[in-house]
């Protein structure tokens, strides 16, 4: 009986963790599902990281940049420096593991994709996608 209870507890815990993981991918914030972009593409960022980023800048526009060559923290420092000079950028996050850069822009900013791409290139990196989160 004890073994059965233990097994049931383990199963329940595993199922709970899996459900939590699933929630992480489909978590909604202020009524918007985070894995859909305005261009219809799927968002592939760490959900928890994304939620933390978004919750710190409510109302701002969020841009997710997919970057190639971003393998070194020391070499990615310039991203913060470069985008930090733009007064319309309110928050920056660099995720080395997924090769993504998250930017928050003040709500009235017109997102200039060419400028973003140039800033990434000025850091010696290449942009493969720029996604603007659906508001």
């Amino acid at each position: 009986m004890k073994k059965f209870l233990l097994a049931a507890l383990l199963l329940a815990a595993t199922a709970s963790q899996a459900a939590h993981h699933e929630m992480g991918h489909m978590h909604s914030h202020e009524g918007h599902v985070h894995d859909t972009m305005v261009d219809g593409q799927k968002l592939s960022v760490d959900a928890e990281r994304f939620d933390n980023f978004v919750s710190a800048v409510p109302g701002d526009q969020i841009v997710v940049i997919s970057v190639q060559g971003m393998v070194c923290d020391f070499c990615a420092r310039g991203i913060e420096k470069t985008f930090g000079k733009d007064s319309s950028v309110t928050k920056i996050d660099v995720d080395l593991a997924s090769g993504k850069v998250l930017l928050a822009y003040s709500p009235d900013t017109e997102i200039d994709r060419a400028s973003i791409e140039k800033n990434i290139l000025n850091n010696g990196l290449n942009t493969t996608a720029i996604q603007v989160v659906e508001k």
Binding site: Q68, G69, V71, C72, C75, G99, G124, L125, N126, T128
Partner: peptide, 12 residues
Amino acid sequence: YLINRKNTATSQ
């Protein structure tokens, strides 16, 4: 002078 650079998703 940088002669050549190749970036991929996981390397530079």
